[in-house]
Computed example of a mutant assay.
Amino acid sequence: MAGGADLPSPSLDQNDPEAPDFERLPKVVDAPQGRMPAVPQGFTVQVVAKDLNKPRVIRIAPNGDVFVAESGSGRALVFPAEAAKGGASTPQAFAENLDRPFGIAFYPPDDPRYVYVAAANQVVRFPYRSGDRKARGPAEVIIADIPTKRHWTRDLAVSRDGQRLFVSIGSASNVAAGMPNKSPEEIKAFERTHGLGAAWGEEENRALVRVFDPEGGSVRNFATGLR
């Protein structure tokens, strides 16, 4: 990973000297031939897979299988547990045709019967039994119609008591500049039903964490005002 001194200095938009220009990005170079990352004594680094299409999240199933959200291809991949023990491995497509999948969760956590996947536009689940390398059935939509503008990554987590799941939903902009004005009284009234610091307009139900039951019958805002 490059340090701060290795990155190019940010440039400024000529039309607006106060606005940073984010187009000057670092250049990615290939790793030196035969070199691997340096790790502490007692650890080793091995290549398990390469040339994946925007892999974003890794989750380990209770049996040790490695699930990977390959956001660029719209797939959830699975590597057998033995792949982590050494050598390259070819993954299998556990699920396909997803819109930029990201979060993965096993439910119930200890002996899962479902694999939940958070795509950009919805949360779905697939029937699952330990050791499955392909979903046992089609996707069941748990939360539908999540807006996809701008920040699209959606992570998942299961509550400690195993009764609920959480999904993160990013904002539709960087600074919420498109939100229409509200009076202080209107903001208070809105927050009473949506949560303290919740956004409105195109940002409604964005920049927050939602909590839902495993069947998706009850979905509500859990943490708001995060952007």
Rank of each mutant, 00 (worst) to 15 (best):
A105Q: 02
V209Q: 05
D65P: 02
F222R: 11
P147F: 12
F94M: 08
Q33W: 03
L226N: 05
N221D: 07
V141R: 03
T90E: 14
P109Y: 07
G216N: 05
F212P: 13
V124E: 01
H151P: 06
P138S: 12
Y107G: 02
A223P: 06
G87S: 08
R220N: 11
G162E: 09
Q46A: 12
M1D: 07
E185A: 14
S11A: 09
E203C: 12
G217N: 15
R133E: 15
P62I: 14
L98G: 13
E203L: 14
A172P: 03
D145L: 07
G64H: 11
S218T: 14
V158P: 00
G170I: 05
E18W: 10
K188T: 11
V45W: 08
G103F: 12
N181A: 11
G34E: 04
E215P: 00
T193L: 12
I142W: 05
Y116W: 00
D213H: 06
T153W: 13
V68I: 15
R125M: 02
F94N: 08
R125T: 05
P80L: 04
V45D: 03
K149M: 07
A61Q: 11
R59S: 14
M1V: 01
D51W: 00
G74M: 05
P91E: 10
A83T: 09
A2F: 04
A31T: 10
P62R: 14
V68R: 10
E96C: 02
R206H: 07
L165Q: 09
L25Q: 10
V209H: 02
R210V: 10
A88E: 14
P8W: 03
W152P: 00
D65W: 03
T90F: 06
V29Y: 07
V115Y: 03
